[in-house]
Computed example of a mutant assay.
Amino acid sequence: MVHPSRRIALVTGANRGIGFEIAGQLADLGMTVLLAARGGPAGRHAVERLRLRNGSRAVEPVTLDVTDPTTVRAAAATVADRHSRLDVLVNNAAMPEPAVPGRAYHPPSSCDLDTLRALFETNLFGVVTVTNAFLPLLRRSDGGRIVNLSSGLASLSAMSAEEGPFSSIPPNGAYIPAKTALNSLTVQYSRELREAGILVNAADPGPCATGLNPTGPRSAARGALVAVRLATLGPDGPSGGFFSDQGQVAW
């Protein structure tokens, strides 16, 4: 059992990329971090890397596949037994790169429906599965925070502007709609949980260099900053918003 004053955070898909950096930065702030990953060995290896990096033992592996409700329920039961509550949930998990080759970026007219379903399974349905499983533990916190990792590409206003920042990006029928749906879900959770004091926001990490986007111009560590800020909001912080490290992003 952790010290009562130490906040407890769970990050999904945290064995690499932005999720790994979010987990590391939260641990650096003194939180107990539950590093969730689909595969046990991958998660344990990531935990050891973080422990070596920040010298803290307050990082624990949790096996959790957001598309498998059985593992999600088991993870929630494990967290309840070990810690009795959860203060921060970061829904970061994404599909593994081999599952989303160029098909995730086809235009709607040639969109592969299996890929579309798989992306929604992870980016939307998986978020619902994990959030609902951990909500009883978040309700036990004196300041629950939920952060959903989205993308600036999910902004309807930016994407539809003829002279906007994304005007040169080809139409996309799978990845972008899945993230836009996640934004909508974020707003609805924020409305439902407002009275409980649980703040729910979407984070745009920007175009980071990760497995999904190896040529991204910014580091995963920089991309993690906005999620960490939203995970550590005070009681008067915003809820139901969409934010990058530059401030609020238009829906």
Rank of each mutant, 00 (worst) to 15 (best):
G164E: 09
L138F: 00
D65G: 02
T63G: 15
G55M: 05
R38L: 02
A93R: 01
N123R: 08
L10H: 01
D142I: 15
L135G: 10
M159R: 15
A75N: 00
G216I: 05
V147P: 02
A227N: 01
R191F: 12
E162W: 14
L124E: 09
A154D: 05
L113C: 14
A80Y: 09
V200N: 00
P61Q: 12
D28W: 13
S141K: 05
G55K: 03
H106T: 12
I18Y: 01
G211L: 08
P165W: 15
A196V: 09
L124K: 07
K179E: 08
P177A: 06
R57I: 15
F120I: 11
A93T: 03
A80F: 09
G241T: 14
P107I: 02
T186Q: 00
L182G: 07
I198P: 05
A133T: 13
F120N: 09
L26R: 07
G144L: 03
R6G: 03
A174G: 11
E121K: 09
A250W: 14
S5T: 11
G126E: 06
R85S: 09
P165Q: 12
L149T: 11
N148I: 14
V47E: 06
V59L: 00
N15C: 09
S155C: 08
A9F: 03
N15H: 05
V59Y: 00
Q248I: 11
E21Y: 10
A23S: 04
L29Y: 02
Y189P: 05
A94H: 10
L182E: 07
A94K: 10
V88R: 10
G234E: 11
S151G: 05
G247I: 05
A220P: 07
A76D: 01
F243R: 00
L113A: 12
P235M: 14
M1G: 15
E192T: 10
L182H: 04
G247R: 06
A93D: 02
G241W: 06
P107S: 08
L29C: 11
L230T: 00
V47T: 06
M159G: 13
R51T: 14
F134R: 07
A174E: 07
A250M: 13
R139L: 11
